[in-house]
């Protein structure tokens, strides 16, 4: 007989899987409050909030944080412009080789980061571009474009036809249609794509390692910091900040696209 309730074994396994995935994150948060600074002893011998103040006053945290924010912001903006243009072309026109090009656009996200990193590194060397903030941004933009493209192209497909024609029928010129109908409907998809791209860029390590010069982004700073047994909980404080900076945009992006699909489909 079919039962709507899963068996005990299945439920236990699901719970176990979820705990395995998420408990370590909670432990990372817990260690931000530990009084033991040299090693991660469990359970923590005592709890304190002093590491937040220490982290705040550590001068070496700020440059990587600023760099990460800067890189994420610029590569996201770049991706939003290029990704939107590409998705508009893909959704609204048909041309020879369209499917192949669409595959090429998606490739950077399917490709392992090491491959992307290696190829970019050698390309930058050949072109004599010194490794700098610019090369990190270019590296990040390769996968950020895909994220924006994926979000925008789905919305474009739904938008084409119907309401754009209605707008022209009511007397709007192309610019007015773009501004009053197109952009408001594409807006939430773009914002969602942008936030996902920002989150991905903010904690990217592999491509960054290959394309960075002397400077470190926040994730790379964290990696270096873990090796040194000094003020370890500071790294955990930073981890909480990184978690907030990446998780919140993803959460918001999720809600944006969810509502977007509801309203965009409502005309049917």
């Amino acid at each position: 007989m079919h039962s709507d309730r899963a068996s005990f074994g299945l439920r236990a396994a699901a719970l176990g899987g979820l705990l395995f995935l998420h408990l370590p994150i909670l432990i990372i948060f817990l260690y931000a409050f530990t009084t033991e600074e040299k090693s991660y002893a469990f359970p923590p011998p005592g709890l304190t909030t002093e590491w937040f103040a220490v982290a705040w006053n550590r001068a070496d945290i700020w440059p990587p944080l600023y760099l990460s924010l800067w890189v994420a912001t610029i590569s996201t903006l770049l991706a939003m412009i290029l990704g939107t243009l590409v998705s508009a072309a893909m959704a609204q026109t048909r041309f020879f080789g369209r499917e192949q090009i669409s595959l090429l656009i998606l490739l950077p996200i399917a490709l392992p980061g090491v491959i992307t990193g290696m190829s970019l590194r050698s390309a930058f060397s050949i072109m004599d571009i010194p490794f700098s903030t610019l090369t990190i941004i270019l590296g990040h933009a390769t996968f950020c474009i895909v994220i924006v493209y994926n979000n925008a192209v789905a919305r474009f497909r739904r938008l084409s036809g119907g309401i754009l024609e209605a707008s022209a029928d009511l007397g709007a010129n192309s610019f007015q249609t773009f501004r009053h109908v197109f952009l408001p409907n594409l807006g939430s998809a773009l914002l969602a794509g942008g936030m996902l791209a920002f989150a991905l860029s903010f904690d990217e390590v592999i491509v960054t390692t290959f394309t960075a010069g002397q400077q470190s982004t926040l994730p790379i700073w964290m990696l270096q910091e873990l090796v040194r047994p000094r003020q370890r909980p500071v790294t955990n404080v930073v981890a909480i900040v990184v978690f907030m900076a990446t998780f919140l945009p993803i959460l918001i992006a999720y809600y944006l696209t969810r509502n977007g699909s509801e309203t965009a489909g409502a005309g049917k």
């Binding site: 119907g162 309401i163 024609e165 209605a166 707008s167 009053h180 408001p184 309203t263 409502a266 005309g267």
Partner: peptide, 13 residues
């Protein structure tokens, strides 16, 4: 000339 479209094509936003 104005049109009443088959699927209405109202602006959802």
């Amino acid at each position: 000339v104005n049109t009443v479209f088959q699927d209405y094509a109202l602006f959802p936003h």
